[in-house]
Design a protein around this nucleic acid. Sequence first.
DNA 1: CGTCTCGTTCGTGTATTGACGAATTCGACA
DNA 2: TGTCGAATTCGTCAATACACGAACGAGACG
Lengths: 236, 236
Amino acid sequence: MKPVLRQQLAEKMAGEITLSDSPGKALKKWRTSFQIAPGVLADHLGVSPSVISDYESGRRKSPGTGVVGKIVDSLLNVDEENGGTYIKKYGKLLFSDYDDEVIYDIHDFASSIPIRELSELIECTLICGELDSQIFGYTVINSTNAILNLSPNEFNRIYGWSTERALIFTDISTGKSPMIAIRVTPFKPPYVILQGIDEEHVSPLVKKLAEKDHITVLCTPLGVQDLVTRLRKTQW
Amino acid sequence: MKPVLRQQLAEKMAGEITLSDSPGKALKKWRTSFQIAPGVLADHLGVSPSVISDYESGRRKSPGTGVVGKIVDSLLNVDEENGGTYIKKYGKLLFSDYDDEVIYDIHDFASSIPIRELSELIECTLICGELDSQIFGYTVINSTNAILNLSPNEFNRIYGWSTERALIFTDISTGKSPMIAIRVTPFKPPYVILQGIDEEHVSPLVKKLAEKDHITVLCTPLGVQDLVTRLRKTQW
DNA sequence: CGTCTCGTTCGTGTATTGACGAATTCGACA
DNA sequence: TGTCGAATTCGTCAATACACGAACGAGACG
């Protein structure tokens, strides 16, 4: 299960509930959509069943972000324990075909974090540039699929909600292709991280291309799975 | 400005804020992203500037859905007054190229509503089938663009979060093409509404195809803009 | 018909939110 | 460096969220 799927679905649910005129009804809609009984949800949340009922009946007119978050999380947890049927079902609606093949993970932080922190977390080596600024998010991209499948317009999508981010390219050989793709793109990320490669295997052209656009390039020897897990489990 | 864009962006923002560990930081991120000063936001909300500050500083750890909704709404309102620069900017990230051309509006209700209610709201005439059940949402689709541009997989996207919905096709001549498209699709909507056509101009084939899949077909003489406006302004 | 389970309603106590406004700090600019 | 407007911090209070558990209703099943 891709973490990005769960996250985006959670966001969609939370957004709908929060904006609803009656959050209670929206909560109930999602619980019933996931085919989860009130009692089961209450157990998972560690609260009395009456609490669920109170929210869904609308006795709490404006439940806090805390409870909404916990309830959404519980619904998804219960579903995952049951094989994730509904997460898969609804998750499909969030992504186009190409997104699925191209973007392994995409995340935007609530506030900026120093790139140095992220760099250390995933054991990066500096190829060129500086490590002195902050970023607002990261995107993990399968470079082969991105270049094969994305139309120029779609390409912008990998930038998420802020261009102040690190683009992490997986499935690379020498790092040349992603740097060329960036060279011909109007938006430039401040940081590029090449995954699954050592410093000595990085093409010398990478450095040249990066310097033209003032991009800092790093590489990490970690595997994709490990990398995504580390990024995900950190509470930014 | 397509209403669906604003709505989806609002949902994304609200979702992110609600799920954030510190809703305050997330609120601040969105306000600054929209380049709106705290004072301006406070004015629009009709509250004292200190209120904004209190939320953003995290003094309120779990703000209610009500305030989050109001703040998100205000941010979008202010931006729209200024020409909608950021709504457009961020909205682009929510839709693929094809979505934009194909889906005029898509909405899911918090709870089911009787189709009869929707039918009367947009002045429908019954072509065939019954009007006795409930729906969970609607999708307004440009039929020409949908057939020209959508891949089979992408086609499923028009169903939104529930197949229990009304599909409203615009830009039709006799209604034949959309019914054929539905005939060859695995998922069947319970209701199809043909926009901008009178009963007598509907192809006789429409009825035959509809009966095979037990689909209720209606038509409405309203214009697209009028139709979308009526659907939107109703609080379901 | 009794009873067992599950869900809902509701009264209640405590903690927190939501809003204000006064006091204070910050930032731009002369 | 002093001044002005804007933003933030903070004390306060009423309203409400949050959670509990007791009481009540509704199907399922023998």
